[in-house]
Design a protein around this nucleic acid. Sequence first.
DNA 1: CTTTTAACACCTAGGTGTAAAATT
DNA 2: AATTTTACACCTAGGTGTTAAAAG
Lengths: 209, 209
Amino acid sequence: ARRRMFPSVRVKVKGLDPLQQYYIAIDVVPVDSKRYRYVYHSSQWMVAGNTDHSCITPRLYIHPDSPCSGETWMRQIISFDRVKLTNNEMDDKGHIILQSMHKYKPRVHIIAQDSRFDLAQIQSLPAEGVQTFSFQETEFTTVTAYQNQQITKLKIDRNPFAKGFRDPGRNRGVLDGLLDSYPWRPPLALDFKAFGTDSHGGSSSSSPV
Amino acid sequence: ARRRMFPSVRVKVKGLDPLQQYYIAIDVVPVDSKRYRYVYHSSQWMVAGNTDHSCITPRLYIHPDSPCSGETWMRQIISFDRVKLTNNEMDDKGHIILQSMHKYKPRVHIIAQDSRFDLAQIQSLPAEGVQTFSFQETEFTTVTAYQNQQITKLKIDRNPFAKGFRDPGRNRGVLDGLLDSYPWRPPLALDFKAFGTDSHGGSSSSSPV
DNA sequence: CTTTTAACACCTAGGTGTAAAATT
DNA sequence: AATTTTACACCTAGGTGTTAAAAG
């Protein structure tokens, strides 16, 4: 099983040096070491055991536009819509590996190009020159079969590849699903500011799997 | 108009340092400054005027696997099957720009990664650490409408995207079209050997557009 | 007249949720 | 019983030569 992350993380950056080159990357880290199960009648995730995430380093997905000047990064909305998730721990395609029934949180990394190091094909984060952002609102719980009908509706309404499952009767206008589907969020706002401060980004919003 | 180059240039490299990182790139250069027209009754390209190519630098297509270790490059057949050609001189998508009715020849460049320079997004070839290969057999003439029925047949027989035009009656076996279509060639053999010698590659064979 | 463009039917390639089957 | 895998119909996205219209 290997599917794209949807909805995808989208980001707007400011505070970059327009002339400096940057890599921008995403990874997904565990929120805790608990295993969860969904309780249908209360529509709620409940703790159902423990896991040890401590020995696995999360995989890094480098945004395909990398490397790119600060000016260019800041001019566009940066979308990670090609990120692929898998539950196969033996995956050799470089996809992000997650365990089912666990809570995760995406992180976005801005990495200043440094001629002292070769960032051409980064496997792990460099020790310096990195600023990492994460957002409470992007937490999600992994599943192999949907538990929550609102999520299913959001995906069918919003993902172009799921068009075949949309209700043919209603939802014709531009505002399709805006009223009754899961909320849609603007891109996350990231402020790079200066170096040295390992900031954990401010408040904005985006979207879980 | 923007189409892939087909047949694509395919290459096998030897003589690389297994541990060194390399970029591999392709570009397409004019063979002469003549304009050609196809004479049907003699099945031949004839000179039909002059052009000045002198002020345009050919665009470089970096192989998407770049950068990559010599070991990895040498282990696989390197295919440039995603190279796109256009006749639009104002193209801003980075595709290779060619003029119709002219003769061209692809070149393959092997570029050793040098920490002194940033090769992350090469626009033009560096002054040193590059070895360039080109092959007589890969010359081709550009057109916007096919002039030669053998080329048309080759494309229909060998390009998976043209399957819809194949003759449904014949050609069912593994050896489809091998007998009566345009000849198919093994990958070009490139020997990197050592630095400093700006070799123009030996003799092997591949395929025009 | 020659050459180029644009719309088209027909493909490849791959991303969806679903439902049944398989696994644990 | 809960969770995962697989095959599937239905999409998006984009690469073919063809053809007719447009451009020169």
